[in-house]
Simulated assay, not measured.
Amino acid sequence: MKIRMGPGERLFEIGIYASLVLLVIVTLYPLLHVLFASVSEASQLIKHRGILLQPLGFNLNAYLSVLKNPFIQSGYMNTAFIVVAGVLFNMAMTILGAFVLSRKKVLWNKFFIFTIIFTMFFQGGLIPLYLIVKGVGLIDSLWAVIVPFAISTFNLIVLRTSFAALPDALEESAKMDGAGHFLILTRIVLPLSMPVLAVITLYYAVEKWNSWFYASIFLKDNELFPLQLILRQILIANATDEMSAGGAVGDHYQIGETIKYATIMVATIPILCVYPFLQRYFVKGVMVGALKG
């Protein structure tokens, strides 16, 4: 049976859809602007002012220049290693920590949880962190941006809450059948927590993909720089000399502008391609792990 809506309800529904359309436009336009600018003619892009609603001409020279840069290629390789190794390491440590903290009979459980949460508000600072990383010999190594950041406190709390929300009867029945903690974790807890695990994995992957600050501190060799640090050099330091060498000064400046936009697209597209496959887990995974404390 179809329910008729009154004028006020219909107006409210129209307002909701209008707000959603406006939100989509505001969210999507910056990406479209970068995409249009990256394939535009450099000379026309320099002269353009205001909103960019379509490419100004069509030219892929910026993408060709970006892909020819050896630092872009090494940056992709370094970032791929950081993402894969880092996410595996993060997930292993976070799962083990969340499983232990979710058990109700663990000695000093509340003390450990309080200590972990305390680190979200008070940290030792950058200098002690640098001294520790230098003391263990990780300076100028890709592991310097992986090992010190093994666990995110927020992700640990979300995953621990999700594990604790599972019915106790499942664990008790498994123990009656002779299952140990490792078997309970791998056969019961993890399969039932796949939505939360998918969300946490994406959180870690995006964090690793976008990280550049600690890499700029711990890494000195340009061949070890991740992609985002190379991107920062191009965008902020205007480091386009190698990619646009050989032209006049004006041409150098023009192609440098399009290279900046092309570099942003090259660095952004991979993570955008991964997101849709995990997006459906977001509402289910995050809400299950966050609502119950």
Rank of each mutant, 00 (worst) to 15 (best):
F149D: 04
A150D: 04
A150E: 04
I151S: 05
I151L: 05
S152L: 05
N155T: 07
I157P: 09
V158D: 04
V158A: 08
L159N: 01
R160T: 11
R160P: 00
R160Y: 05
T161P: 01
S162V: 07
F163Y: 08
F163S: 10
A164Y: 04
A165N: 15
A165W: 06
L166E: 15
D168P: 07
D168S: 10
D168C: 04
D168Y: 09
D168H: 08
A169T: 13
A169D: 14
A169K: 07
E171R: 06
E171Y: 01
E172K: 01
S173W: 03
A174L: 12
A174V: 12
K175A: 08
K175T: 06
M176I: 15
M176R: 06
M176W: 09
D177H: 11
G178K: 08
H181M: 13
H181D: 14
H181L: 14
L183Q: 12
L183A: 12
L183Y: 08
I184P: 11
L185I: 05
L185F: 02
L185H: 00
I188P: 09
I188Q: 02
V189R: 03
P191C: 07
P191T: 07
P191Y: 05
P191G: 01
L192Y: 02
S193H: 00
S193K: 00
S193N: 03
M194H: 08
L197H: 00
L197E: 03
A198W: 02
V199H: 09
L202F: 15
Y203M: 11
Y203G: 12
Y203H: 14
Y203S: 12
Y204S: 12
Y204L: 01
A205H: 04
V206A: 12
V206L: 14
K208C: 13
K208M: 10
W209G: 11
W209F: 13
W209H: 11
N210H: 06
N210I: 11
N210Q: 03
S211G: 13
W212K: 12
W212D: 14
Y214N: 13
A215C: 04
A215T: 03
A215P: 08
S216E: 03
S216I: 03
S216Y: 10
S216G: 11
I217G: 11
I217L: 13
F218I: 02
F218G: 00
